[in-house]
Simulated scan of single mutants.
Amino acid sequence: MPIMFDTSGFQQSGEDMWDSPLTGDRVIRQYTPGVPTIPAPLEDLPALRRDLAEASAEGGCLVEAHVISFAGLPALLRFEKLRHWNRPGGLVYTASVIVPRATGAATVLVLCAENGPTGFRDAMVAARVGIDRMNPPHPYAPHVRGALPYSVADDPQWDAQFPDHPLTRARRWFAELSRTARIDPRFAAQPPFSGPIPDFPGMTPLPDSAPPS
């Protein structure tokens, strides 16, 4: 696999898959050969964010997306939320970083599900900012009306007040994994990703990568 990182605090549950024994959060490492299915060039962040928001709306909501340097290479970082597959009313939050090159993409995906009462973070933030300010138009694509609404409660400014929330955990796990991430020099030496191909698949597929219930 092109990406390597420290898995301390996790237990291996499959090939390139690790689970946290404390929270049930899951980390998955993947490599996909071929031209990466990213909907816009990394250099065009507004278009990339708009297209990602539109794609994510089909099954949930794009929380945020950024182009970053990951282990020294350009990468796409995104946080998303979607409905829990076996817990009515619950949500799952994901953090994924895709490192695209011309011939393939290396990905690290973090899955964090709600373990406690659902909707607690949104309810607490709504009490502070007002219910009428909770769900503004999506900042990347104001025309989008997704399966889940964009929420100001998902802003990173609230993470410190909700340290056990799955979105906070997803951001924290990504920060910890990125500090130790290394890229195989052979993958890094491949030509850079220069543009998208059609048929972007939307949200990260989850059926085979769902965290344990």
Results as ranks from 00 to 15, higher is better:
residue 65 A to P: 05
residue 163 P to E: 11
residue 30 Q to S: 10
residue 53 A to S: 11
residue 120 F to A: 15
residue 148 L to C: 08
residue 34 G to S: 07
residue 6 D to T: 00
residue 15 E to W: 07
residue 196 P to L: 05
residue 36 P to F: 02
residue 189 A to L: 06
residue 102 A to D: 12
residue 127 A to M: 13
residue 108 V to E: 02
residue 50 R to S: 09
residue 209 S to I: 10
residue 212 P to F: 13
residue 4 M to S: 14
residue 119 G to I: 09
residue 128 R to K: 14
residue 46 P to L: 02
residue 32 T to C: 05
residue 133 R to I: 00
residue 213 S to K: 14
residue 97 V to D: 01
residue 109 L to M: 11
residue 80 E to T: 13
residue 82 L to H: 10
residue 117 P to L: 11
residue 190 Q to N: 09
residue 103 T to K: 15
residue 154 D to K: 01
residue 15 E to Y: 08
residue 98 I to S: 13
residue 204 T to V: 15
residue 30 Q to M: 13
residue 146 G to Q: 04
residue 134 M to F: 03
residue 181 A to I: 00
residue 100 P to K: 04
residue 28 I to S: 07
residue 131 I to D: 13
residue 171 R to C: 01
residue 139 P to Q: 10
residue 114 E to N: 05
residue 108 V to D: 00
residue 100 P to R: 02
residue 207 P to V: 03
residue 43 E to G: 13
residue 146 G to M: 02
residue 62 L to W: 06
residue 155 D to C: 09
residue 31 Y to Q: 00
residue 107 T to K: 09
residue 80 E to P: 02
residue 176 E to A: 11
residue 79 F to C: 03
residue 134 M to K: 03
residue 16 D to A: 13
residue 15 E to F: 08
residue 145 R to Q: 14
residue 213 S to V: 09
residue 153 A to F: 04
residue 116 G to D: 15
residue 66 H to K: 15
residue 173 W to L: 13
residue 7 T to C: 02
residue 126 A to V: 04
residue 5 F to Y: 08
residue 60 G to L: 03
residue 148 L to P: 03
residue 192 P to M: 11
residue 189 A to P: 03
residue 209 S to A: 10
residue 177 L to F: 00
residue 136 P to C: 11
residue 111 L to I: 04
residue 144 V to C: 06
residue 21 P to F: 10
